[in-house]
Nucleic acid binder design. Structure first.
Length: 771
DNA sequence: GTTATAACTTAGTAACGTGTAG
DNA sequence: CTACACGTTACTAAGTTATAAC
């Protein structure tokens, strides 16, 4: 990998506040020269010049006090709804408090009762949403002017910091350190990540430590005079161990405690979960303000580990109707600003301190606003169908254009269209070095005549894009030209291009056409084509497998990856072993058949041939595995049983009992030994005829097949993430049509939340719909 | 044109919770 | 019935793009 080394030193020895504000100098480039006369380097090397301007506009507070009287209408409305609900719940509440008093004597029935209540609540909610659901997709009026009214309760703040117990401390040079709570919190953020990749990353450590010292300084240093200077002398392990302990305790919590906690949580977030948009109740998405933490940048991020500071109400801008009641800010605080901008979709926003960019609180994915944008996105992609032929014809022609800019545009669009590359905007120094189409550099493509191209670069989220592909002959020639000396590593391949030039050009074909539309278009198109190939036959499970295979093609096209889970290799191994064992069982049954009737082998040699494939070593291995498993089983059973008895004050089982159990295993072991020696198998007495054995074998065949298919699926999916394309790229109507036509329940394909997000698709499409 | 800003979509993963094998 | 693997959701980082400002 030739990833350019990034200087991550820019923040060293600069106080936090300074580093946030600092502007990078703008560098002047010589931009004029004439490319076509071969001065390819006019812009090269393209230094990262995007400087971070920090407006630090103090968010002004517009006083909106006069408005508060007009709110009544809406608040009344809200109240009415609440009343309706609370009326229904008063009864429940009474029984609730009642049951609480009985709780101690009769906790079991209480759990049941609570469960019932919750079920009722959920049903109630489901009914509510059904009754209120607004089918915007059946409306033809378009809401171009933005929302008409927006009423909400603001945002939910994370809890205040709770200092560690006094015996849990940071150690410096083996001395306990008394930290002010503000600094202790930051130390805790790091301690929590101590054993993770982040915690071990030197850049992360450096950035964390810098900001940690800064916070310490802001709070007048340690309380016991210890001066912290070196990261290496800091020992976070006690804090880390304490967090681990907390985790353990949390794991051990009983069902009731969990439920209690969940109920509390639900109650707390209740006011924030919904808002009223144009008079209708809609779900809010991320109503929780992001809690302070260490910034976990992905890939080689220069800023990873920096402190993401706590957001105060004063940092937050709320956006709502003029006549909406203004949510009450937390005690002793004021909102940064109240705004009434119906042209935007956010309910609240704040500026974060890592990049000085904005974070928004917006509606949930199942909201009408998001749904409408989504539909619009897919309709735009479908619109591209009408233009794609022209566009392709044009870029093929322009691959040979005399004008270099045209040639670059042509190649870029080719890459975006064929390999689903992203636009590739410019990035600044203090971000990870990742690229897309327009920002590809010399070192990211290797050319192997006659027309093989190797792409190797880090894309969004520092996910590697590696592909060896054959390209159009002319594209290959153009890439040679784009890489011609004096260009060298570090130089831009498309030195005349950026996404805005490209997008402007694309708009000439179709209004609203941009680079990203190609990804949506090609993803959905691919899905349609793949689904068309699926025959309408077989079980639902088979159809699902086919659907997932189609989904996977799309995910691969879009390079949607996921890291293999830690247990993956192991679980594949386990599954393999399981299959091996099943085969072994099958072989044993076949042997048993031959023991009953030797002539069978002559009749069907192929059927029995696998018997010879089983080696002694394999057999021994399987035997050992089974013995091991059985032994473990009894040990576990023993421990569990005694745990239970201890708890219930009963007499404990003696070691003797365990040994008795284990004798069974010993017996099995002997049997296996015997079997190995003589080659004779002993099968359950019930299976005493050839027919019965054959039937059993048939069953095994089936199990082996399904296990094998599942395993294959699992392996093929281990590095591919299907979710992203399902959520963002594949027109949901394709999936709906598939389900309708093939008799597959939609629940098999869309989870509950996806069904809510895609209700517009589920309810609006008949089975003849095509992308 | 270039650069900055704002607002929106897309993305992987950690945390959570649930179904199911044993 | 439990344990645990696995699917789902919550979270927030990291993109794109339109538009304003220079």
């Amino acid at each position: 990998m030739t990833k350019a080394e990034m200087s991550s030193s820019s923040d060293e020895s600069v106080p936090l506040s300074e580093s946030i504000k600092r502007k990078h100098e703008n560098i002047n480039y010589d931009l004029d020269s004439d490319y076509d006369s071969d001065d390819a380097l006019s812009k090269q090397p393209k230094k990262k010049k995007k400087s971070k301007k920090h407006k630090n506009k103090k968010i002004k507070i517009k006083e909106e006090s006069e408005e508060s009287d007009d709110d009544e209408a809406i608040s009344k409305k809200l109240e009415k709804k609440k009343k309706k609900k609370s009326k229904e719940k008063t009864v429940e509440k009474e029984t609730d408090s009642l049951s609480k008093t009985i709780k101690k004597e009769n906790s079991k029935s209480n759990v049941k009762k609570e469960e019932e209540e919750e079920e009722q609540q959920q049903q109630q909610q489901a009914e509510d949403s059904k009754e209120e659901s607004y089918k915007w997709w059946e409306d033809d009026k378009t809401n171009d002017e933005g929302w008409k009214s927006l009423v909400h309760n603001g945002v939910m703040f994370p809890p205040d910091y709770k200092p560690l117990p006094s015996h849990i401390k940071l150690y410096y040079d083996s001395q306990p350190v008394e930290l002010p709570p503000e600094a202790e919190e930051v130390a805790g953020f790091y301690a929590a990540l101590l054993e993770t990749d982040h915690g071990k990353n030197p850049v992360f450590q450096k950035n964390f430590f810098h900001d940690f010292l800064q916070v310490l300084k802001e709070n007048k240093g340690t309380l016991n005079g210890i001066e912290i200077k070196s990261f290496d002398k800091c020992d976070f392990s006690k804090i880390h161990a304490y967090f681990e302990l907390l985790k353990e305790e949390k794991k051990k919590m009983s069902a009731q405690e969990r439920k209690q906690l969940r109920l509390e949580r639900q109650k707390e977030e209740e006011p924030y979960k919904f808002c009223e948009l144009n008079g209708r109740r809609e779900q809010v998405g991320n109503f929780r303000v992001e809690p302070p933490d260490l910034f976990r940048g992905r890939g080689k991020h220069p800023k990873t580990g920096k402190l993401k500071r706590r957001v105060q109400p004063e940092d937050i801008v709320l956006n709502l109707s003029k006549d909406a009641p203004i949510p009450v800010p937390p005690e002793g605080h004021k909102w940064g600003e109240i705004r009434h901008d119906p042209t935007v979709q956010w309910l609240a926003m704040w500026r974060e301190n890592i990049f000085d960019s904005f974070k928004y609180v917006r509606l949930a994915a199942n909201s009408s606003l998001k749904g409408q944008s989504d539909l619009k996105k897919f309709e735009k992609a479908r619109e591209l169908k009408k233009h794609i032929d022209t566009i392709r014809k044009d870029y093929r022609r322009n691959l040979k254009s005399k004008i270099m800019l045209e040639r670059q545009k042509a190649v870029a669009i080719y890459l975006i269209d064929v390999f689903a590359l992203r636009a590739g905007g410019e990035k600044s120094e203090d971000e990870a070095d990742t690229v897309g189409c327009c920002s590809l550099r010399y070192e990211h493509v290797t050319l192997q005549p006659p027309n093989i191209v190797v792409f190797d670069f880090l894309g969004k989220d520092s996910i590697r894009f590696y592909q060896e592909v054959e390209v159009d002959k002319q594209v290959f020639k153009d890439l040679i030209i784009f890489k011609r000396p004096p260009k060298q590593p570090g130089h831009q391949l498309f030195d005349r291009l950026d996404p805005s030039i490209l997008n402007k050009f694309l708009q000439s074909y179709m209004p609203g056409l941009t680079a990203k539309v190609f990804r949506t278009y090609n993803a959905s198109k691919t899905m349609q084509d793949q689904l068309d190939l699926i025959p309408n036959e077989g079980s639902v499970a088979e159809k699902l497998l086919r659907y997932n295979a189609a989904n996977r093609t799309v995910a691969i096209l879009c390079n949607h990856q996921r890291s293999v889970t830690k247990g993956h290799a192991q679980s594949v191994q386990k599954a393999n072993a399981r299959i091996k064992e099943l085969i072994w069982q099958r072989i044993r049954l076949k042997k048993a058949i031959l023991q009953l009737d030797k002539k069978q082998r002559k009749k069907n040699p192929k059927y029995f041939s696998e018997i010879d494939d089983l080696t002694k070593e394999d057999e021994i291995e399987i035997h050992e595995k089974i013995i091991e498993r059985e032994t473990e089983k009894y040990h576990r059973k023993f421990l569990r049983e005694n745990d239970k008895r201890k708890f219930e004050d009963e007499e404990l089982l003696e070691e003797k009992v365990l040994n008795e159990w284990l004798e069974k295993v010993e017996a099995l072991k002997e049997e296996f030994k015997e079997e190995l020696k003589t080659g004779k198998v002993e099968i359950k007495p019930a299976l005493n005829t050839v027919e019965k054995l054959e039937k059993q074998i048939e069953r095994l065949d089936l199990r082996i097949e399904t296990s094998s298919i599942q395993l294959k699926d699992k392996q093929e999916n281990s590095e591919v993430s299907l979710g992203t394309s399902k959520i963002n790229y594949i027109d949901p109507r394709l999936s709906v049509v598939f389900c309708k036509k093939f008799g597959v329940p939609i629940e098999k394909i869309f989870t509950k939340s996806l069904r809510e997000k895609f209700t517009w698709a589920i309810e609006s499409v008949d089975e003849n719909w095509r992308f």
